[in-house]
């Protein structure tokens, strides 16, 4: 079992590396295509189905600045796989270098409780949870932009701020059970 470590390698100049982990391998390709279009910094995108990453190219792999778990809420397997992958991450990653992206949150066939379980997990790990509209190209672009915002901070490219600081502002919280909020 090999842990992925956030600080075991030196960063490259003006470069940010992001790892997209998705069991279904549907949305990550779209995201990757949009992410690499960024011109201000060099963005390297690595794709994986799950963790741990294979040992073979461990040497050549750059330092990963941000690990993104993409979870399709309509599939239980997606969530389980991401949850199982989490333990192959060094605890240092949870200081602002892990992010969850949920897709299909507005789908009718989302099992009740699935979204809540994911929120709970993200809140427990102090990680941000983004929602993405994976069906439309605009949705993919906007999620890529948001990931890029986090990635730039996580790879230390934004002055005045750190990954830990940003994650303290954006980490997931549990929303109340809202139906008709009663104000008594």
């Amino acid at each position: 079992m090999s842990l992925l470590k956030p600080f075991s390698k030196l960063p490259d100049l003006n470069t940010a590396n992001i790892l997209l982990v998705e069991n279904e391998e549907q949305f990550q390709q779209n995201l990757a295509d949009t992410l690499v279009e960024e011109t201000a910094v060099t963005v390297n995108v690595r794709l994986a189905k799950s963790l741990p990453l294979p040992m073979e190219n461990d040497e050549s792999r750059p330092r990963i600045d941000l690990v993104v778990f993409i979870i399709n809420l309509t599939s239980d397997k997606s969530f389980e796989s991401a949850k199982a992958s989490l333990k192959y991450l060094d605890p240092g990653y949870f200081l602002g270098k892990v992010c969850f992206v949920a897709t299909n949150a507005r789908h009718a066939s989302v099992r009740t409780g699935c979204l809540d379980a994911l929120r709970q997990l993200a809140a427990l790990l102090h990680c941000p949870l983004l929602f993405a509209e994976d069906q439309s190209p605009e949705g993919a672009t906007s999620s890529a932009r948001r990931l890029l915002t986090i990635l730039k901070v996580a790879s230390g490219l934004v002055p005045n701020t750190t990954a830990l600081y940003l994650s303290s502002l954006t980490r997931c919280t549990m929303p109340p059970d809202i139906d008709q909020p009663s104000f008594d």
């Binding site: 949870l129 915002t149 502002l169 980490r171 997931c172 919280t173 929303p175 109340p176 909020p181």
Partner: peptide, 19 residues
């Protein structure tokens, strides 16, 4: 008493991760 959970928490998460 409710404004934080209903409004501020989700907005804050959106605000700081968006463009």
């Amino acid at each position: 008493s409710q404004i934080k959970t209903l409004l501020f928490d989700p907005l804050m998460q959106l605000f700081f991760t968006s463009s």
